[in-house]
């Protein structure tokens, strides 16, 4: 199952994803994707370095679904909520299919 690596940024706690070249992004669309276990291991060890460098905390891999148009969707409700960075004060928030 394709995966990405996610975490929270240490400084402000915001949800981030490991992007190519060791950068971190708030947008799951820009996340580096791992198709195989070996690719995932590479991502995870890059993430581990970011933990040690105190850029992020709470790193874990997360399965995703790659849709036909190439966009990415998290599998679980929890991860869809995280990826949406939503607050309940957003007016349309529960109209978003989750």
């Amino acid at each position: 199952m394709p995966s990405v690596v996610t975490a929270n940024r240490l400084n402000d706690g915001i949800v981030v994803y490991l992007a190519p070249k060791g950068a971190w992004t708030e947008s799951i669309a820009d996340a580096a994707r791992a198709e195989t276990d070996d690719e995932l291991k590479v991502l995870e060890s890059a993430a581990e370095i970011a933990v040690q460098d105190r850029i992020v905390v709470g790193v874990y891999p997360m399965p995703i679904e790659i849709k036909e148009d190439g966009t990415v969707d998290p599998i679980s409700v929890r991860e869809r909520i995280r990826a949406s960075h939503r607050t309940t004060l957003t007016e349309d928030w529960y109209d978003v299919p989750l």
């Binding site: 949800v15 105190r54 709470g58 995280r82 939503r86």
Partner: peptide, 28 residues
């Protein structure tokens, strides 16, 4: 001390919790 690396997250967690600071789904 957390930001400088003197404290790991594991050591910092109980200290921040005692000040009501959680790391939640989206943020602190």
């Amino acid at each position: 001390r957390r930001l400088s690396g003197e404290l790991t997250e594991e050591q910092f967690r109980p200290l921040r919790l005692r000040n009501g600071l959680y790391l939640q789904l989206h943020a602190y």
